[in-house]
Design a protein around this nucleic acid. Structure first.
Length: 524
RNA sequence: GGCCCGGUCGUCUAGUGGUUAGGAUGCCGCCCUUUCAAGGCGGAGGUCGCGGGUUCAAGUCCCGUCCGGGCUACCA
């Protein structure tokens, strides 16, 4: 039988990295097995429903490049794929009626206040918490009829078996045993007529022919309800796969204080979908050999095996993500990198993210100005429209020292900025300009080279190197540093960056001349 | 409290009775070099949560224990 898996988010908020990992596993598994991936929207809780949420899922999944074979936006043989719409079609009503007829479900008429009091009583008397039958599990038909006739609101509960060992099979943990006497009767249909997750998800999983249910491990404790529901209907249960959670640096569930949790925020920060997916797949899964870089997604799909999922929770290590992202950038051509940066800026969320960015600066770090970060990347793209070849050369030189796409904004800035608005780092000028007697002559030499054609428009880096080393030989200096460093500061305003000769070849004589002239005015 | 799940270098992990416990990241050093990186090479870092057992042999099997986490809603 063909593998069918589903991603079934509840549209209550944003799509975070934990959920991404679950869909990723769904996706990798489905593609590896040549099966189908289904999107189902679990919008049965009207109180928590967030109308923008579904769009968030669609945007995020589109960005990461996970496509569904069936779902609300692509249709399919089991439509509709939103549970609110399925409820309206009477799907759940039909199946709950069958369950009641079989005696596996019953109506319960307690008010929420009565349930509250019951819980308090249980707490005080150290009894197991939960609804184990109350007045209604074994109520006579007449009593139930009377309550209905009175118009009392009710829920429908699952009549859990008693004195029974319930064994749930989990693919990565094996048998999980529960004593049915510790399991209260869960609500299947709420007073508003809507099904709970426990009911709707299982009915749909069966109806949609789902073979493997991948979900977070927080569902383990409710899995015996789900398992027995399948037994009550006489349906073949799917294979349950409870994925471990992703936690933050302190071992607690990943939250805002660990950094971004929203998947789209990683996009905005310049992490590429391929790197993110590669990284996230490796939390809780490993191929078994020592491989961990998958440049080609097809290879990741091929390597993926659901049996190799791990049961223990994993931490989200930003440093490693950054490394993987940078590694991937280095594998790309400047053209590909520029295209990625342009694509990134075309995403509305990127702009929104940086414009509203509020940094929580670490103890002794200067805060990040989101608008400045964005501005630099936007400037890079703007300059790319004006002079694409030039910007590509700058990207090529800076490719070695970035961890994310947005880093190029700052890294390439000195290349693309107008000569008269280049920023000079005061510490750099203080170190290499002031009190350096040989620097004026050096600047004269550089200017002369620009004017006499030694530095031409197409002069390669090696010739810049030869010219400067010749000058060094005749200068009487014993180290190349005093020549190279002031030149670097004059041309870039910084002490760090690409190789001097390479960056000179990119800048060309015009810019070199202008910048040296400006630097000269800063000599004191 | 009850019921479940988990526990190998800081982190992600390999490992299914016999390995000097391997790889990656991060950290440190060396090489390269005009700087910062990148890259190459090397190093430190693990009494496999702890305690018992089984066995000639245990990270691997069994029991206990501790710690962490989840659930205990008419939320998912």
């Amino acid at each position: 039988m063909s593998v069918r898996v589903r991603f079934a988010p509840s549209p209550t908020g944003l799509l975070h990295v934990g959920a991404l990992r679950t869909v990723l596993f769904d996706y990798l598994f489905a593609r590896n097995k040549g099966g189908q991936l289904i999107l189902r929207i679990e919008d049965t809780d009207r109180t928590r429903y967030n109308p923008e949420s579904e769009q968030e899922f669609v945007d995020t999944l589109r960005w990461v490049g996970i496509q569904f074979d069936e779902g609300p936006h692509v249709g399919g043989p089991h439509a509709p794929y939103r549970q609110s719409e399925r409820a309206a079609e009477g799907i759940y009503a039909k199946w709950i009626a069958e369950l009641e007829a079989k005696g596996h479900a019953y109506k319960a008429f307690e008010t929420s206040q009565e349930l509250e009091e019951m819980r308090e009583f249980q707490q005080i008397n150290k009894q197991p918490l939960g609804y184990f039958g109350g007045d209604w599990r074994d109520a006579s038909p007449e009593k139930v009829e009377a309550a209905i006739a009175e118009g009392k609101p009710y829920v429908i509960r699952q009549k859990m078996p008693r004195d029974k060992k319930i064994v749930v099979q989990d693919l990565i943990r094996g048998r999980i045993e529960f004593d049915s006497n510790t399991l209260p009767d869960p609500v299947l249909i709420k007073a508003d007529g809507m099904p709970t997750y426990h009911f709707a998800a299982m009915v749909d999983d069966h109806l949609m022919g789902i073979t493997h249910v991948l979900r977070g491990e927080e569902w383990i404790s409710t899995s015996p309800y789900h398992w027995t529901l399948f037994e009550m209907f006489g349906w073949q249960p799917p294979i349950f796969v409870h994925c471990p959670v992703i936690v933050g640096k302190d071992g607690k569930k990943l939250s805002k204080r660990h950094g971004a949790t929203r998947v789209l925020d990683y996009m905005a920060q310049g992490y590429m979908k391929g790197a993110l997916k590669n990284f996230i797949a490796l939390i809780g899964w490993a191929p078994g050999d020592d491989r961990e870089v998958y440049e080609d997604e097809q290879e990741l799909i091929q390597a993926f095996s659901i049996e190799r999922l791990q049961p223990s929770p994993g931490q989200f290590d930003m440093e490693k993500l950054r490394w993987l992202n940078g590694h991937r950038i280095r594998l790309m051509s400047p053209e590909e990198i520029l295209a990625e940066i342009e694509g990134l800026l075309a995403e509305a969320h990127t702009v929104q993210y940086w414009e509203n960015f509020v940094d929580e600066p670490m103890p002794n770090q200067k805060p990040i100005d989101g608008k400045e970060v964005l501005g630099k990347v936007q400037f890079l793209v703007k300059r790319a429209h004006e002079d694409r070849d030039y910007v590509l050369k700058a990207i090529k030189e800076e490719r070695e020292r970035v961890g994310s796409l947005v880093d190029f904004g700052d890294a390439c800035e000195f290349f693309i900025v107008a000569d008269d608005s280049l920023n000079y780092d005061p510490k750099a000028t203080a170190k290499w300009f002031t009190g350096q007697a040989h620097v004026p002559a050096l600047f004269d030499f550089l200017t002369a080279c620009c004017e006499n054609g030694t530095f031409g428009a197409d002069t390669p880096a090696e010739e810049y190197e030869n010219a400067i080393k010749d000058y060094f030989a005749s200068s009487g200096l014993d180290k190349l540093g005093p020549i190279v460093h002031p030149t670097r500061v004059a041309l870039t305003g910084k002490t760090v960056g690409p190789g001097l000769f390479e960056l000179m070849a990119v800048l060309g004589p015009e810019r070199i001349k202008n910048r040296v002239a400006r630097a000269r005015t800063m000599l004191s």
